[in-house]
Design a protein around this nucleic acid. Structure first.
Lengths: 210, 210
DNA sequence: ATAGAGTTTTATCAAACAGTCAATTTCCGT
DNA sequence: ACGGAAATTGACTGTTTGATAAAACTCTAT
């Protein structure tokens, strides 16, 4: 007996929803929720506004679908921080993966940045539950490494913040980074420079040792 | 002969412009340029919309006045990095002052973050000239310190980025920081924790030394 | 090939928006 | 106290915005 079955999606539905979400990511990541318009998204997706609203009845529905879809991807690098690994390689890997995400998914990074910047009205609960629990758990891991003398002692939560901020900076403040570095260091060279610098910073710091 | 003299401002004019800019800072820092509305700003400033537009004829004029007014304050800490000082105290001071600015002027930080995040359409020129020149100049200073062995060798421009991102994070991502830290570490305790952590990170890094 | 579900468009709406204008009220130096 | 400048307001305009309704069209399983 299949009562109330999951409505299975048609080919057109799948395609159009994907095109809408892609266009919406462009718009929302650049202008935030309020600044982006449905017309804009519809044009980006190559369809009329009423047709777009046939797939997502309200503007907010598109936005929420986007956020839901991106959350797992976004938190995955931290989730895979392995308690049983060596702290230094684990850390190095985490930083590199976050930096790669800034390079490969800058729109996603800006979407979250916009949401937080604007007070996170739509994801406060998530921040206080899922995100907090994940950070609490991984802070314990890091704290354990520190107590065992395998990492310098420092506040693990602020340490996570510093990894987030330094890596996401290259996506969120891309325009500024480009302007300051000038046209010379574009492309992959820039990414490698950033990776090398962050490794030095996080492992060795800036104070010379005798 | 005083031809075309500067129109001197009345008391009311001075007061109202200040109230408008303050309300505008609230609105723009929270919603960005497109997301903020003139009605909203007028209400925040406690006056009618036509009256507000009597002082600033266009929405964009308010925004530009705000940015102009804030730029000097914002760049001052980097500008006062002193070539002839000791690198470590200079660095420590710069980080602390940037962190204090995030604590004392979070709205200003968010305003800039919003502008950059949305592609910096109104300040691209400034980024490519004034900001780039300042960073170039101070990068030379830092580079000199490194060549003299007074700082670890690392890319000075990325070093500046990392100081900006880690300190501004506490203003721009305040909601997230609060959610993750929980209600316990509120107020000044949080600030001191961050200051202590960043000092450890930037000076010593996280890898333990024998 | 065709019926019915699925898709798209035209036309339209009310609310929100930035900005204008003329008329009124308040301020302030004399 | 008064006259002109400065300040304030209500009423309004044209546009953009999110959203709806109904009609027309297209796809697909049988």
């Amino acid at each position: 007996m299949d009562h109330n079955p999951e409505p299975r999606k048609t080919r057109i539905q799948t395609e159009n929803e994907a095109r809408i979400l892609d266009a919406a990511l462009d718009a929302f990541s650049l202008h935030g929720f309020r600044g982006a318009t449905v017309d804009q998204i519809a044009e980006g997706a190559g369809m009329s506004k009423p047709n777009l609203l046939y797939y997502f009845r309200r503007k907010q529905d598109i936005y929420e679908a986007l956020i839901d879809r991106l959350l797992d991807t976004w938190l995955e690098p931290l989730e895979s921080l392995n308690e049983n690994g060596d702290p230094i390689p684990e850390l190095r890997m985490y930083i590199r993966r976050k930096l790669e995400m800034s390079r490969d998914f800058p729109r996603e990074s800006r979407l979250f940045a916009n949401e937080i910047l604007q007070g996170a009205p739509r994801i406060t609960r998530m921040l206080e539950t899922r995100l907090k629990e994940l950070v609490d758990e991984k802070s314990e891991v890091i704290s354990g490494w520190m107590k065992a003398g395998r990492l310098n002692k420092a506040d693990p939560r602020h340490m996570i913040f510093s990894i987030w901020s330094t890596t996401q900076h290259y996506a969120d403040f891309d325009v500024q980074v480009r302007a300051v570095l000038g046209p010379d260091r574009g492309g992959d060279g820039r990414f490698e420079d950033a990776a090398r610098y962050l490794e030095t910073l996080f492992l060795d710091g800036l104070k010379p040792r005798p």
